[in-house]
Amino acid sequence: MDDKIEIGHGSGGLMTQKLIHEVFMKHFDNEWLRAEGDSAIVESTHKKIAFTTDSYVINPLFFPGGDLGKLAVCGTVNDLAVTGARPGYLTAGFIIEEGFSFESLEAIVKSMKAEADNAGVCIVAGDTKVVEKGKADQIFINTSGVGFVDNLHSSLAGGGLIKDGDVVFLNGTVGDHEAAIINAREGFFESAGLVSDCASFNGMIRRLLDQTDTVRFMRDITRGGLAGILHEVAQMTSLGFEIEENKIPVGESVQAFCEALGYEPLHMACEGKCIVIAHESESGRVEAIMKNHEYGKNAARIGKVTQKHPGEVVLETIAGGRRLLEPPREAKVPRIC
């Protein structure tokens, strides 16, 4: 096996064939890829499908709790899951910088396969491009995904079902992913115990949807953090949120990291977290279902929907004060002192 990716690996010739067979087919192996068609022909079990896409660029490629490959699968799986879909099939597009190591590529591909298996999805089509040295930062991945939507859940995506008085749940601690990434990138603290929460939580969502019928809306928390997502939903629905800061779970390492550098945990990106908005009836049951799942064991009821202040997220702080919870508006820089 070659050591490094060369321009020839993207040329469409024999080197490309070799790359496809010795890396992608070898690990992703399934009937659709083996068919080697220009498109994968898949069975649709439902009339309605959810279809999404996302591109993944991250530095460093490997970080505590995950890597680019895992992220590229769980990010797209979660995007499908929160709209109420059952994630089914993914495609994967790779843009690789000339000189990138085969070993790292294979590690990323293996990780994608492992995460796809965890999430119960298949990677059924793909593409590879190699660009000259300096034209990309090591490797970028785009994944697109389709999922199948039960008629019962076909209105979950838009937020139109959210009502005054609904309860807001969060499936665990916030800020883990971004704290782990910044720390790994900048080397602030050794053995800080910061681990990305990067995970496909579609299993938890499926249980929620199968076992209750009170869920009104879900959204995964990625860039912008919890504050960004709540703000986005408030703006989108013209409803407001009342959030209690002391109910929001924050891991001790993340809290210490944020306190030391002057970051706001509620502004930090997650990769395995979502908000779930549900009708007040059965709210105890919703919380219990989340808590009984691996990816919801630290779930908490963090606040409620209100029509009192449309478009605004009001935070009751740990000290009992009230202020607006603003989305992050600028790049994070550590404070001076």
């Binding site: 702080t317 004060g321 202020r323």
Partner: peptide, 15 residues
């Protein structure tokens, strides 16, 4: 400045 930040972050003026 860090006091200003903390006072606002904890919502102390409203209390």
């Amino acid at each position: 400045g860090s006091h200003t930040h903390a006072i606002r972050r904890f919502g102390l003026p409203s209390l």
